[in-house]
Amino acid sequence: MATIFIIDDEETIQFLYKEGLSLEGHKIIGTAHDGSKAIEDINKLKKYPDIIILDHRMPIKNGLDTLKEMKRYKIIAKSKILFITADPTVREEASKLGVTSFIQKPFSIIKLGKMISEIVK
């Protein structure tokens, strides 16, 4: 079981993560619509989440910009980031910032749950 923080601007997708990932026994400990709010909330948590699911395509602050800020706050070193993008250039830049796990939409929520179980095993 993993603790997960979700950063995605779409409420419907957030809800899907909550429902789908709980099937595999994972616990959603927080959600945010944009990167700034996410960092603020994560820094308030008693314990960093095992996994942060971060969507790249978001208004105001996109996934890459959020990653840069996360690196500054050393969040990347403490949580595993699952970065959602299909853009190879963005992936390359995200890799440089320390991201090792990528997924792209559309994905199977069931498979994603299993994948997270493997990551935190």
């Binding site: 779409e10 419907t12 997708i13 899907l16 429902e19 789908g20 099937l23 395509r57 299909a86 939409k105 559309p106 994905f107 199977s108 929520i109 069931i110």
Partner: peptide, 17 residues
């Protein structure tokens, strides 16, 4: 590529659930 992809991801996910 974005809006439709998100919609498809959602519908696909909910059908799975």
């Amino acid at each position: 590529s974005h809006d439709f992809l998100n919609a498809n991801t959602s519908v696909h996910g909910y059908l799975e659930l």
